[in-house]
């Protein structure tokens, strides 16, 4: 016969815990080896531009004169080619995915002469950064012609320059 032969597993399933994880109600448990997102130790960067040339997605922009390193997290495919090719090994992959957002934006890191690295967030498509950005005097190198200002539409990303875990 074999009718209802699956009933054993099905009824057993009723009494077992669900296997689905409770993300995002509970934080995700991700392994160490995960290729989550790229982080840079900007003070060690020598602005050689190797990562920019090797990136298959064209997500990295390096400006030698302004000593900035900028990544478009939505274009990045987490292949870790930049990490492998950096001559001073200032890039690393962090096992934490980039946070979702409502606006596509670049994340720019600028090497400071002083001790504190400054982080500024520029929004593409010519939106001015909101006033609460913790950047010091040097604004980001990417040009941001302020045409139409979207008021408070952009979420601020927390400055991840120091490798803080959860974005």
């Amino acid at each position: 016969m074999g009718y209802l032969s699956f009933a054993g597993t099905i009824l057993g399933g009723l009494f077992k815990k669900p296997v689905t994880t409770q993300y995002p109600l509970k934080p995700a448990v991700l392994p160490e080896e995960l290729r989550g997102r790229v982080l840079i130790d900007i003070q060690r960067c020598i602005s050689c531009g190797m990562c920019m040339r090797k990136c298959p997605a064209g997500a990295i922009v390096v400006d030698r004169s302004a000593k900035s390193w900028s990544i478009n997290r939505f274009a990045c495919v987490q292949c870790a080619t930049c990490v492998d090719n950096c001559p001073v090994k200032c890039l690393r992959m962090e096992p934490q995915y980039a946070a979702p957002g409502t606006v596509k934006q670049n994340e720019t890191f600028v090497k400071q002469a002083a001790a504190q690295p400054a982080v500024a967030v520029t929004l593409v498509k010519g939106v001015t950064p909101t006033a609460s950005a913790p950047a010091t005097g040097t604004q980001a190198a990417a040009a941001s012609a302020a045409t139409a200002a979207k008021t408070a539409a952009a979420p601020q990303t927390t400055p991840p320059g120091d490798g803080a875990g959860h974005a």
């Binding site: 399933g13 009723l14 669900p18």
Partner: peptide, 11 residues
């Protein structure tokens, strides 16, 4: 909900 639990989901 019962169907989901039978399939080891939350529902």
């Amino acid at each position: 909900i019962i169907t989901a639990r039978m399939q080891r989901r939350v529902g």
